[in-house]
């Protein structure tokens, strides 16, 4: 797992990381590049994206359709009806 991801995981899951001193200590021991460390310290998401190589591109999010008339649902209903 990349070091940046490990750091982000630590920050999100370790309550101790809300302590500025502990966070600074963890960051200095994480072997991040200077650019990554600075981006995390300044909470600059765009800079962190640039500083993290091979980051997969996310184009869109799964959402709910306003009219979800999926074929699967109607098939399921038809089968249920046929079973009676």
């Amino acid at each position: 797992m990349s070091k940046v991801i490990e750091v982000l995981m630590q920050m999100a899951s370790n309550a101790e990381m809300s302590n500025t001193k502990s966070l600074a200590e963890m960051l200095s021991n994480a072997n991040l590049t200077k650019a990554q460390e600075l981006a995390i310290q300044t909470k600059d998401m765009d800079a962190l994206k640039v500083a993290t190589y091979n980051l997969p591109e996310i184009r869109c999010y799964p959402i709910l359709l306003p009219d979800d008339k999926s074929e699967e649902v109607s098939t399921l209903i038809n089968r249920t009806v046929a079973n009676f």
Partner: peptide
């Protein structure tokens, strides 16, 4: 996977 950002995608790949 369908993640919200590239970092989460990388995390999953790990």
């Amino acid at each position: 996977s369908l993640m919200a950002n590239g970092f989460a995608q990388k995390w999953l790949e790990g």
